[in-house]
Design a protein around this nucleic acid. Structure first.
Length: 245
RNA sequence: CGCCGAACAGUGGACA
């Protein structure tokens, strides 16, 4: 049974649904009842390949065979719904899960938060974030990344900045990607000085900007008609060994 | 057979 699981996981990582499904089917032939991990593995591939209806079928089969879904099962399914834009169904499944007595953890919350952001449901995301903390789940760095990027893209920059300060207050540091995202959004909102301020902070913190961030900066300064600043950055970039594309 | 552990799920940047 473990052997099957490992095999399914391998196919799953290779993105080979057909072989994963075939292997899964063979389990029964060998008198191995799939356990929750096997189900999760197979659900995961299906969801990755957007075969959501198939996944739902497997989920129902799972219930029929009295294999109780666990938190990972729901995370996989909810994630699939979110990523195919079916946020309402995702929320419903989320409720179904809690009704079954399974409480969400960091991962589940992050999935739903990111789904809500992608669905442009800022207020729902905000209140879920609060609910998360009041349920004793502390957002971790992945949660913050997801929500920060989400808020930025919804042009809720001030909310993102507030989030960032509570984030820093808890001793986390942003990664380069997230800074880039924030800076880009500041530029788009016409908040050039702030964008520049964050960039300077990055340098002070000894984080090396990469090609993408330099591109964001240069583009931003060009839009702000600060061509000299843009050129200065271009030089800084090449001096630091970042090659323009 | 029971217990314990392990193995499954989350974010991600400009232009394109």
């Amino acid at each position: 049974s473990d052997a099957f699981l490992v095999l399914i996981l391998c196919y799953s990582k290779m993105g080979n649904v057909d072989m994963a499904v075939e292997t899964f089917g063979k389990m029964r032939e060998f008198n191995c009842e799939p356990d929750v991990y096997a189900y999760n593995a197979i659900l995961y591939v299906m969801v990755q390949k957007q075969l959501f209806l198939l996944a739902l079928g497997v989920y129902n089969q799972m219930l029929k065979f009295n294999c109780s879904p666990n938190l990972a099962t729901y995370s996989i399914l909810i994630d699939g719904l979110c990523k195919t834009g079916q946020i309402e169904d995702a929320l419903q499944l989320f409720d179904e899960m809690t009704e079954r007595g399974i409480s969400p953890n960091n991962i589940t919350y992050t999935i739903v938060l990111s789904g809500l952001c992608h669905a442009k449901r800022f207020y729902d995301a905000q209140s879920l974030l609060n609910k998360m903390s009041s349920n004793g789940c502390d957002p971790d760095t992945i949660t913050y990344n997801a929500v920060l990027a989400g808020f930025c893209k919804l042009d809720r920059i001030d909310e993102a900045l507030m989030l960032l300060s509570s984030f820093e207050g808890r001793g986390y540091a942003l990664e380069l990607n997230s800074y880039s995202c924030l800076i880009d959004c500041l530029f788009r909102a016409g908040r050039f000085d702030e964008a520049n301020k964050w960039f300077c902070k990055l340098i002070r913190d000894n984080i090396s900007p990469d090609l993408v961030l330099y591109t964001i900066m240069i583009r931003g300064f060009c839009q702000a008609k600060r061509v000299e600043d843009a050129l200065k950055l271009f030089r800084q970039m090449t001096d630091r060994g970042v090659i323009p594309d």
